[in-house]
Simulated scan of single mutants.
Amino acid sequence: MAAALTIENIRRVPKVLLHDHLDGGLRAGTVVELADAVGYADLPTRDPEELAGWFLGAAHSGSLVRYLETFGHTVAVMQTRESLVRVAREAAEDLAADGVVYAEIRFAPELHTERGMDLDTVVQAVLEGFALGPSSITVRCLLTAMRHAARSQEIAELAVRYRDDGVVGFDIAGAEKGFPPTRHLDAFDYVRQQNAHVTIHAGEAFGLPSIWEALQFCGADRLGHGVRIVDDISFTDGVPQLGRLAAWVRDQRVPLEMCPTSNVHTGAAPSLAEHPIGLLRDLRFRVTVNTDNRLMSGCSMSSEMAALVDTFGWGWEDLRWLTINAMKSAFVHFDRRLRIIDEIVKPGYEAVMSSA
C-alpha cells in the first residue's frame, strides 16, 4: 500500500531539478544580511519574513518584465566572492533538505561583476559554494548569457572552459520579445562545435517562433519553459491534433523545463489548473517539473509536486515518471544519470509506493 501523497512524503522522495536560478533562490534572511554587509540600502524592508512576502507579491504580477525587476535586489547583494560562495552553498543545502538529489542551477556571470570581479572569479566562487553543499546532492551549473546584452560569446567560452569543473551547459535568459535567440548564433555555434550542451529560455512570454528558433537555428537540447508549445496543439471533436512543431518536439523527446508556479506568476499560464503541463503529460511529451525562482515564487520542488498532485490528481507513478524524465534529460554524463536513476530515484519511489 502506497504512502499518502502528502507534502511531507513528497519531500522524502528523490527529486531532480533542471531549471533553478541562483539569484532567484536566496533565503530572504541572507538577502538582508548581505545587504547590510555591502551597504545596499534599497531593500523594500529589512525584515526577512516581510521581504519574502514582498518578493512573492511583486513576482505575482502576471508580467515577465515585472517579475524580472525583482532580481535587481538579489543581484545587488551578490557582487563579492564571499557572497557568491555563501549563496551557492545555501542553495545546495536548501535543495538537499527538500529531497533534491540532482540539480542544475543557472546564473549569469556577467551580472556579478559590478564590484570588480572578473567572469572567471564569479564562476569559481559559485562552483566552490556548490562543492561545500551536502554530499546527498549532486549540483552542476549552467552559465547564462542575457538576451539583451552582447556578451554571449564570452559566456559560451566560459561554459566550455569550466566544463570539467562543474559547468554542464550554456543558456540565454531575459525578456524574449524583441530579443530572439538568433541574435546569439555565434555563441550557440561555438558551444555545439565544442560538443557542449545548450538550453534556451523559450516559449515562456513569447510564442511558437521563439521555440522554433531555439530548436532549429540555435540547436537547443532542452527548452526552458516551452509553455507555448501548446499553441501548436488543436482539438477536433475533443481529440488533440499536434502541429508540425509540436509533433517534432514530442517525436525528438525535447525536454520541457516547466515551472508551473512561476509560469502562473509571469502570465505564461492563466492558472495552475489551466497550465499546459497536464495536457502535455497526457500526450507524453518529455515534461519535467522545476522551481525557476524559489524566493520570488515562494516554492520548492516538493510544493510544486504537491500542487500538481492536488490540481491534476497525479499519483506516485506520475511523480516518478517526471523525475526520471528530468534525470534522463540532465546534462551530466550518461553513467552518472543512469546511476542516479537506478540507485537513488527508483529505490526512493519504490519505498513510498510500497509502504503505508
Rank of each mutant, 00 (worst) to 15 (best):
A145E: 09
S135I: 03
A175H: 13
K177E: 15
V168G: 06
A220W: 09
Q153E: 14
Y162G: 12
A175G: 10
G166L: 03
I137R: 00
V139R: 00
A175Q: 12
E154Q: 15
Q193H: 10
T182N: 11
G133R: 03
F188S: 08
V198M: 04
E204Y: 02
D171F: 01
D164L: 10
G219T: 05
A173K: 01
P134T: 00
C218M: 03
I211K: 07
I211L: 07
L185Q: 09
A150N: 13
S210T: 04
S210P: 04
L143C: 12
Y190Q: 11
R151A: 08
T144S: 15
Y190E: 12
G203Y: 06
A156L: 13
L185M: 12
I211G: 14
F206Q: 14
I200M: 05
G174F: 02
D171T: 02
P181W: 04
H201G: 06
I172S: 01
A187E: 15
A150Q: 15
S135V: 04
I200A: 01
R183G: 13
H197W: 10
P180D: 11
W212K: 15
A156W: 11
G166H: 04
E204P: 05
D221F: 13
R151C: 13
F217H: 12
A196Y: 11
N195T: 03
G219E: 04
R183A: 11
E157W: 07
R161L: 06
A175C: 10
P180Q: 10
H197R: 12
T144W: 03
L215M: 04
I211F: 08
A202K: 01
M146L: 11
L142I: 15
G203C: 06
S136P: 00
R147E: 09
Y162I: 12
A196I: 02
R161M: 04
R151N: 09
A202C: 13
I155M: 14
C141L: 09
Y162N: 09
N195V: 06
S210A: 12
C141E: 07
E213N: 10
G219M: 05
G174D: 03
G203W: 01
L208G: 09
E154V: 08
P134K: 04
H201M: 10
S135M: 02
L208H: 06
C218L: 05
G178S: 14
G178C: 13
A175I: 14
A159H: 12
L143A: 13
E204G: 07
D171A: 06
R140A: 15
D164C: 08
D186W: 10
R151W: 15
P181D: 04
L185A: 11
I172G: 03
Q153I: 14
